[in-house]
Design a protein around this nucleic acid. Structure first.
Lengths: 153, 153
DNA sequence: TATTGTTATACTCTATAACTATA
DNA sequence: TATAGTTATAGAGTATAACAATA
């Protein structure tokens, strides 16, 4: 036995979690430009914003459950967005603990600037695949994701 | 036009970078247990270690280029591993700036403990796919990854 | 008692760059 | 001048938990 008794070598470059992580970093870096470089928003800020746009009016708790972020991460993202004037709050008259949020006109404007750019990025990233390959990839990732989400419970 | 003039909504749940990121987090969390929870190694520590096992003896610069980590990240990972006695250094007699590293016997022991466990995790994660689906997935991810790696240059 | 949301704290990670020793 | 590697520093992100207000 050589290499001072290493029993089995892990082929990092073939190892799914490693490949996935490298790919995710590349994709994430490429898609972050429109919100990070152009509007100085963190990934959490952007996710909260994208969730707001889809589901507003919405509370911090619901943003957290939708984005899979922790409640303090959402709390801070919301504070940052609010301090930049990108969202407005609207207390729930029935439950005084809860606060509903909406994008402000400025928030909508920035969202409208970001969305077509990140969609372009996504198109670029997937442009090396055929339509059928894209749909296969999506299906397989969903399957693995659902499998892992099951285990979380 | 409703929702205060949002032009196009981004369907986050269908958006490839978002799905990929959520999946990567789940996979990474699941596979980290053997090195993080059992041996208190960070992801960078573990990557440096896995690279050492494959390519030792190897310098910090070569670990960086293989793992795509920054040189200071490698520098710190190597320092942590060294302080735990998991690797040994071996100065290059020909270039006094360079230091070659190898896993120590203790490093090999820990590596041997981690590897079968992370391989099990990988098997669990991919167990929801058929062999043919796994190979398709790998092929598609490689294709996208290569496409993005091209753009980096 | 449980829930919504904020705050505190300590820790880790990251990014940028300056620095040393050697080539 | 360039390279191998370390150190400094500031900012961002993370994890755990305590906390206030309300239910």
């Amino acid at each position: 036995m050589n290499d001072r008794n290493i029993i089995t070598k892990l082929e990092l470059l073939e190892f799914f979690p490693y490949r996935l992580s490298i790919l995710e970093q590349r994709v994430s870096q490429s898609v972050a430009k429109p919100y990070k470089d152009l509007h100085n928003l963190s990934r959490n800020d952007w996710r909260a914003m994208a969730t707001l746009a889809l589901l507003q009016p919405i509370t911090a708790t619901d943003i957290a459950s939708f984005t899979k972020l922790e409640k303090m991460q959402v709390s801070r993202a919301v504070q940052r967005l609010k301090s930049e004037g990108l969202l407005v709050s609207q207390p729930d008259p029935e439950d005084k603990r809860a606060i509903y949020y909406r994008l402000s006109p400025k928030g909508v404007e920035i969202y409208n600037d970001i969305v077509p750019k990140v969609i372009d990025k996504e198109r670029d990233i997937l442009s090396c695949l055929t339509a059928s390959e894209r749909s296969t990839l999506k299906h397989l990732l969903d399957k693995v994701d659902a499998h892992l989400a099951d285990q979380d419970r």
